[in-house]
Write a protein that binds this DNA or RNA. Structure first.
Lengths: 357, 357
DNA sequence: TTGAAAGCGCTAACAG
DNA sequence: CTGTTAGCGCTTTCAA
């Protein structure tokens, strides 16, 4: 009992196969009654149009690919969901590929799926701009969270988000903020750091930068020991995982957050609200990002001219929780410059040595 | 500049198209030299076999689908990754669909992708057994974390995991444990509860059950107020999210975890290690689950008889962190039966009223 | 508006 | 081992 084909339907309905085809793909071009009868018969027979056969002759597969660099990164969850919703809504199926931060896997995945799909959303690509432009020549591509010349993209308003974060910190009387950097290759990282520098200039804050670190909790723990060498009362981390790790590391070393150090992260991942203290973070409209990217992609596939050439930019906002607080006057001094101080040692050190700057 | 076809290669290599085809799909059946030459020419021309055309004539698409109920549920991350790795390794592309806990979306996704794929892994399906058996008639299906008669499945050793958890609790002198239930429709939930009852009988523990609750942090918070009505010194929650929410709720009400109440979760999601206190939990080999499911699926697709009919069961183990501790003698009594007690009120109440049982 | 016929690119017999 | 010949199921001219 195999799937009925267009021929079976045609025979049963007493029309030519081509008419059946039309009835499904171009309902306008067929007599309303015949069309109705065909649908009827098709339904009875349980006919389903074979996507492969259709694709073979039209090369429209109704599939797009979403390629992400790390599916365990909470940052992508809502993006995936937003993207998938938008795709499903348009009758498209989404191929999701996790490249595990590997350039090789990314290329392989591209290689494998390119012939099958109509377009690609690249989220967190680890390939160089040139490679991205290359694939953009073969199929429509939308880049998420990164700007690549000549390739349409969707990004968030990082400058504004960073600005808010800096203002928040300034308002809490912090004077110097350390940026804990993420992956060097990351466009977002560069953008965040640059934005911070710009904002600080205007706001009269001093900035420093440590890193790069892997954008993980583990990386944050490592960052803590590095921060200990030249502590500042405020920190902006590349992302939430890093921020969370940083806080853990700091606490393990005896520093209080936000008592001694205020920490702000990026992305507002689900765990940001779960950790102690709740993480103050710059949040992005994740779901909308995914949906927007897919919508634009589908528009381009449908033949839209690739927009203005400028990235689509989505708003960000600062979510204030408990990892930031007013700078405590008497603890300005980097009294815990030694890395391996125990908790109590650190407490003792800082409480007995008032600020010296 | 369109993609070269098998005909272009054939012409350029001076052989028949079918030979080119053979050279790629059945290298054995062609003269080594010719094969080499064909590969050569194909490479030069940049020939890539068109998967749709191949699929049309062989109905082998090299695609499988992984359908999960909630992509934001950390439980699935590693499963997805394991599944994808296994698929890629076998040259298969994976279609990932998030059904957002919706039966409708799940059916639609199935509908949409069924004709394109060779098999399906159903993880956290919300469809009734009958519907699953139905689709299993059309394409090979593997069910993850659920046993459906006549459909091959991969599950974890819940009884053993629960047993370990119960032993752990017993060892800490707890006498009664409350099971905080997840979704009623969940096979896993039923299994966990049943296993707990069985284990408790043997271990001489008393058990109670509250719920069902949505398997989220939010659900856990709600569970806390319900638990307050009949508190016990130990709790086993349906999953980690619920456990985390529960702890938050309890703490908000002034109960100490693990001081007053020990909490154990399930699945060992990434946040379990991040929250305070670190969550004791029954962990499952997530990655292996995904990989195993896909491997079995591919085996079945390749023609293997569908195993013994028994589910494949993967081991679990108890990860002990800080949310469990020895029962404190003087606090056995449910002194905080009133729901809306403030933190200090609860402390006062419990510290002044020694156990009465 | 409908039918007939010719592919889409590849694979699978079947001969040679 | 290789060439020839039919299709896979659908869409798309081109006529009628």
């Amino acid at each position: 009992m195999t799937q009925p084909t267009i021929y079976d339907v045609a025979r049963a309905a007493g029309v030519a196969p081509s008419t059946v085809s039309r009835a499904f793909s171009r309902p306008g071009r067929v007599n309303a009654n015949t069309a109705e009868r065909i649908r009827q018969v098709a339904a009875e027979l349980g006919y389903r149009t074979n996507p492969m056969a259709r694709a073979l002759s039209t090369s429209r597969t109704s599939m797009i690919a979403l390629i992400i660099s790390d599916i365990t990164n909470p940052f992508f969850f809502e993006i995936i969901r937003g993207a998938q919703n938008a795709a499903a809504e348009a009758g498209y199926t989404m191929l999701l590929t996790d490249t595990q931060e590997s350039d090789r896997l990314e290329r392989e995945a591209l290689e494998r799926s390119l012939p099958t799909i109509e377009g690609i959303v690249l989220a967190g690509s680890r390939m160089p701009d040139s490679a991205i432009r290359m694939t953009a020549k073969q199929k429509p591509v939308i880049v998420l969270n990164r700007a690549v010349a000549d390739v349409p993209s969707v990004v968030t308003d990082i400058p504004r988000g960073v600005r808010r974060a800096a203002e928040h910190l300034g308002g809490l009387l912090h004077e110097t903020v350390t940026y804990v950097a993420g992956p060097e290759a990351s466009w977002t990282d560069g953008m965040r750091w640059r934005s911070l520098r710009e904002a600080s200039t205007e706001l009269n804050l001093k900035v420093r930068r440590i890193g790069p670190f892997p954008p993980t909790v583990e990386g944050g723990v490592r960052a803590a020991t590095e921060l200990a060498a030249h502590p500042t009362s405020a920190v902006l981390a590349y992302n939430d995982q890093l921020a969370i790790g940083l806080i853990r590391g700091l606490r393990a070393m005896g520093a209080a957050v936000p008592g001694d150090i205020s920490v702000i992260g990026f992305d507002n991942i689900f765990a940001a609200d779960l950790v102690t203290p709740g993480l103050t973070t710059v949040s992005a409209p994740l779901r909308a990002m995914g949906a927007t990217a897919v919508k634009h992609l589908l528009a381009i596939i449908a033949g839209a001219r690739a927009g203005s050439g400028r990235p689509v930019v989505l708003p960000t906002r600062l979510v204030v929780r408990d990892s930031t607080a007013q700078r405590s006057r008497k603890r300005t001094s980097p009294a815990w410059g030694t890395t391996k101080v125990s908790g109590s040692a650190w407490k003792a050190a800082t409480s007995t040595s008032p600020g010296s700057r």
